[in-house]
């Protein structure tokens, strides 16, 4: 474990807590894309399949349980909670996210480190996570006024993988044979997808204005 990866995990945890806080306290999921939340639930379900077969540390297992539990409970809240589900803008959240799942699965079947069931699904989860934010970014561009919590949620979610990139550079420099191109490229693409959001988020923070993405 290094400081970059710890910062990445804490940022990721913070993004999940911000979203749970928003949904649980003000009972609203306005501006949040259910499609992105569903994709993230699939990402964690396919990435943490080894939670029962391999144990690395209490921290590792605990964080996996937190990410699995939070992502599925957010989907549950947005789909079934009587108050929250009414605040979900179904008409705006129209990204065909299933069109993201299939190409990622096909790509994982073509490009992976080992052709085993767990490894292919794990690789699939990497590719899917890289594009999982797209429905949310599209929804943000359609929603005129983005509330602070939703903006912070997306900002933290984008930032965590950026810290992971620093972690991979650090591990590449300090650990022999630590080379994982698939993880690195997927992580880089994922972070780059946030580039324009980060730009407008920073602008709104600098000019102390409401965050608005150009349509």
């Amino acid at each position: 474990m290094n400081i970059f990866r710890l910062a990445g995990d804490m940022t990721h945890l913070a993004s999940v807590l911000v979203l749970l806080l928003k949904i649980h306290t003000i009972k609203s999921c306005a501006g949040v894309s259910l499609k992105t939340q569903e994709l993230y639930a699939i990402v964690f379900a396919t990435r943490y399949l080894d939670i029962f077969t391999s144990f690395y540390s209490i921290y590792n297992t605990l964080m996996k349980l937190i990410f699995l539990g939070s992502s599925f409970s957010i989907v549950w809240y947005m789909r079934y909670h009587k108050t929250v589900r009414r605040t979900y803008d179904r008409e705006q959240d129209t990204f065909r996210h299933w069109f993201l799942v299939l190409p990622c699965l096909l790509l994982a079947l073509l490009i992976h480190e080992k052709f085993t069931f767990l490894e292919v699904l794990w690789t699939f989860s990497l590719y899917l996570e890289a594009v999982a934010i797209l429905p949310q970014l599209v929804l943000l561009q359609r929603t005129r006024n983005i509330d602070n919590l939703t903006g912070q949620y997306v900002f933290l979610l984008g930032g965590y993988r950026g810290f992971y990139i620093l972690n991979w550079i650090y591990r590449y420099l300090t650990e022999p044979h630590f080379v994982h191109w698939i993880t690195w490229i997927a992580g880089l693409v994922q972070t780059l997808l946030y580039a324009d959001f980060f730009y407008y988020y920073f602008q709104s923070w600098k000019n102390n204005k409401k965050l608005q993405l150009p349509a």
Binding site: N60, K64, Y164
Partner: peptide, 10 residues
């Protein structure tokens, strides 16, 4: 058996 890639990252 090839040493499986340590998946110690989240």
């Amino acid at each position: 058996l090839t040493q499986s890639y340590k998946k110690d990252e989240l």
